[in-house]
């Protein structure tokens, strides 16, 4: 490696990963995708304007393209890869498929993470709360209609499961 010699470790989805020979300017998005084999977070703008790279850091949904990876050494990082359990998809993931929330799918992982985060904080969001919560996740294919439908369905499914 010609540009970097950073060595540090990150905790992603509960596992410790060593990062070696990294360049200091690498974003968390780059390190997840190119060094840790976790390509679920997607890069589409590199400036926090599309939400495709959304991950959870210490309980907050953030754009991983705006996190300098080497500074996230003491954080709990959760990516889309950790959401689906062995017994299947989450309600949100399932609803994205059944309601047509997926077309090209490039925005999908970021949206799924953002919506899981929303529903964990606010299990019964209003329509406007849903829209505001995902207003930082750009989707170019769907026009959002089927995505709203997917969130509504997921909220109902989660509610039914609680009762």
């Amino acid at each position: 490696m010609s540009v970097g010699n950073e060595i540090y470790s990150l905790t992603v989805n509960g596992e410790h990963h060593q990062v070696k020979d990294a360049w200091i300017g690498e974003s968390l998005l780059y390190v997840l995708r190119e060094r840790l084999g976790l390509p679920g977070a997607k890069g589409a703008c590199e400036q926090g304007e599309c939400g495709s790279c959304t991950v959870i850091i210490d309980g907050e949904a953030v754009c991983s393209c705006l996190v300098m990876a080497a500074t996230a050494i003491d954080s709990e990082i959760t990516t889309v890869e950790s959401l689906a359990k062995k017994n299947g998809l989450t309600e949100v993931q399932d609803a994205f498929i059944t309601e047509g929330g997926v077309q090209c799918g490039f925005c999908t992982p970021g949206l799924v993470v953002a919506i899981e985060h929303l529903l964990n904080k606010n299990p019964d969001p209003s329509e406007l709360e849903i829209k505001e919560a995902i207003s930082g996740n750009i989707c170019r294919c769907t026009g959002y209609g089927r995505i709203f439908e997917a969130v509504t369905t997921a909220v109902a499914t989660r509610k039914a499961a609680r009762n």
Binding site: L38, G40, K42, V80, A84, G105, P109
Partner: peptide, 14 residues
């Protein structure tokens, strides 16, 4: 391709 896309497993060119 829905399951692969919602779980982040779908392989885009990038």
């Amino acid at each position: 391709d829905g399951v692969a896309k919602v779980t982040g497993q779908f392989e885009f060119s990038s």
